Computed example of a mutant assay.
Amino acid sequence: MQLTVYLAGQIHDDWRQNLKDKALEKNLPVTFVGPMENHDRSDNIGEEILGKQPDNIIRDEAASQMNNLRTRVLMNQSDIVIALFGEKYKQWNSAMDAGAALATDKPLILVRPASLHHPLKELSEKAQVTVETADQALEALAYIFDEK
């Protein structure tokens, strides 16, 4: 069995690459997809496709449309979603991605520190699994393949 895992959540650190590297070390049969990790490309993609926009608000909206298209297609092709919420980079798109996973009935592993328990309690209650670290999320993912 091969699974496709959408990695949602904060984009300003290397948690995704760390998770991918550890999954490779464990020989997990997974393919990872997720949002555009090149922040400048993500911000500029609307103008790259549609051309120069008249102001920053319309520029952001054009980029958002392209990024939302990418997210929807890749999430729909995924078997499971891991959504990471951290203390340092609080982004609304993390909540949107987690909500989209639930709306499309994708299994969700929610990663959040204990300090964010209260603001994420409803989301946590709907997730299949809630953990505090990306390493714990990886262990939960690995358990799917455990035949012991």
Rank of each mutant, 00 (worst) to 15 (best):
Q65C: 14
E25C: 02
D43C: 11
L84V: 14
A101L: 12
L50H: 12
I80F: 09
K20E: 15
A23Y: 11
G99Y: 12
M66F: 01
N38T: 09
V5E: 00
D40S: 14
T133R: 04
P54M: 11
D55P: 11
V73C: 00
E47D: 12
Q128I: 01
L141G: 09
Q91F: 08
K52R: 12
G34M: 05
L138W: 05
L123K: 04
P107E: 05
I11L: 15
N67V: 00
L19P: 01
T71C: 05
N44M: 13
H117L: 03
H12P: 02
A62K: 04
V111R: 07
P113N: 04
Y89I: 06
A137K: 01
L116Y: 10
N76Y: 07
I58Q: 10
G34Q: 07
Q136L: 06
V33K: 02
H12F: 13
M66G: 02
P113K: 06
Q2D: 15
D146P: 00
E48Y: 15
A142H: 07
P54W: 08
Q2C: 05
N18Y: 03
N68R: 05
T31H: 01
Q77W: 01
L102A: 08
Q10G: 14
F32S: 01
L28F: 05
N44K: 14
Q128Y: 02
E87H: 13
K121Y: 14
A103G: 07
P54F: 11
D13H: 11
G34Y: 01
L3F: 12
A134D: 09
N38C: 06
L138T: 02
E122L: 08
R41E: 13
P29E: 03
L24P: 02
D55G: 11
A127P: 02
F85Q: 03
P54Y: 12
P119W: 04
M1C: 08
F85M: 05
A103C: 05
W15A: 02
M1T: 12
E37H: 09
Q91D: 14
T71E: 03
N56M: 13
K106W: 05
A98L: 12
V30I: 11
I57N: 08
E122Y: 13
N56P: 12
I45E: 10
Q53A: 15
V111C: 09
A100G: 02
D14S: 15
A142M: 06
G99S: 12
E25K: 06
D14M: 08
L123E: 02
D40P: 03
L3E: 02
E48R: 07
V111G: 04
K106V: 04
M96F: 09
T4S: 03
H118P: 02
T104D: 06
N38A: 10
L141M: 06
N44Y: 10
A103S: 03
K22S: 14
N68W: 04
